[in-house]
Simulated scan of single mutants.
Amino acid sequence: MSSPLSAHGDRHFDGLADKFAASLYGGARGELRLALLDQLLPEMLELRGQPLLDVGGGLGQLAGWFAARGHAVTLTEPSAEMLTRAREHLAGQDVRLLQAPLQALPEQAPGPWPLIVCHAVLEWLGDPRTALAVLARLLAPGGQLSLMVFNRDALRLSNVVKGNLEKALADRLEGKGQRTRLTPISPLTHGQIEDWSAEQGLMIRQVAGIRVFADYLRQSPERAADRERLLALERRYCRVDPHWRLGRYLLYTLERPSCSPEEATT
């Protein structure tokens, strides 16, 4: 069944948990995404066992990854069905679960937080710009935000590769959120993240592309040796310009400075 938009115009996933799990984490592409994050998160973040807010934590994969590394995690998720799946996945781990949309977090999980993770969430929101402002307010001075977004430029190229030239030329790339297809309603560009981060006083410290090659292949590799070669390519070029710019997802480390720019120059 379709998942209606929330009052904020956001796409939630009640009734779609199985499809969500298969689409985002199932198969070779899902395995590749998790393998790349396993490498990149320790490289791109300063991890010291800080308390962590996982925003829109979905099925709990990231929350479990951080909890296993000593972080006290609070996972927030608006979908009751997804939260139930996360509870099952995270049984026995130090993770607090909170059913809440991103817009409610200043009241329900105010922090300030030294570490926030928000992966594959903004592209499902009706107003991702305001959502990033909310995340910035939750972040402690000196705190880090690990942000991953669905890349609009990669979506355009993917449509061209598939022969959807008219759609790409008209820039009709967004999903509508009214059917069971999982095309994000707000795919984002690197330029938007640059501009919106600057508006909130956040510094972009690191950036990488997730799956810069895999989603453009005519056929996913079937042999284990070929999958290993693809992973090696992804690891080699995921942080190399211009390749990272066409990752299916863009992964950022954003930081709230410990002092304002004016204080830093006095």
Rank of each mutant, 00 (worst) to 15 (best):
G126T: 03
L182R: 09
A104G: 07
G30R: 00
V55M: 00
A225F: 10
M148Q: 14
H190D: 15
L233E: 12
R211Q: 15
W196S: 05
L52E: 01
L45A: 15
Q144M: 12
E174F: 12
M82I: 00
E88M: 04
Q61F: 12
Q99T: 01
G57I: 00
E234C: 03
R11F: 11
L115A: 07
L59E: 01
Y216L: 09
R129G: 10
R129T: 09
L251N: 03
M203F: 15
L132P: 03
I116T: 07
H190P: 12
P106H: 05
E199P: 05
N159I: 02
A63L: 06
Q108K: 08
L254K: 11
V55D: 00
L246D: 11
L254I: 07
L122Q: 01
L105Q: 06
M203T: 15
G58Y: 04
W65I: 04
T266Y: 14
L59K: 00
Q93I: 01
Y249F: 13
H8Q: 15
V240I: 09
A225G: 08
L5K: 09
A28W: 03
L32F: 04
R239C: 08
D54Y: 02
G30F: 04
H190Y: 14
E228K: 03
R248W: 14
G191D: 13
Q206A: 15
A21K: 10
L217V: 14
L115C: 11
C259Y: 06
G111A: 12
R236D: 05
E166P: 05
Q178T: 15
L47N: 00
A136M: 07
A232G: 06
N164V: 10
L230K: 02
L24W: 11
L251P: 00
L231Q: 03
E194T: 13
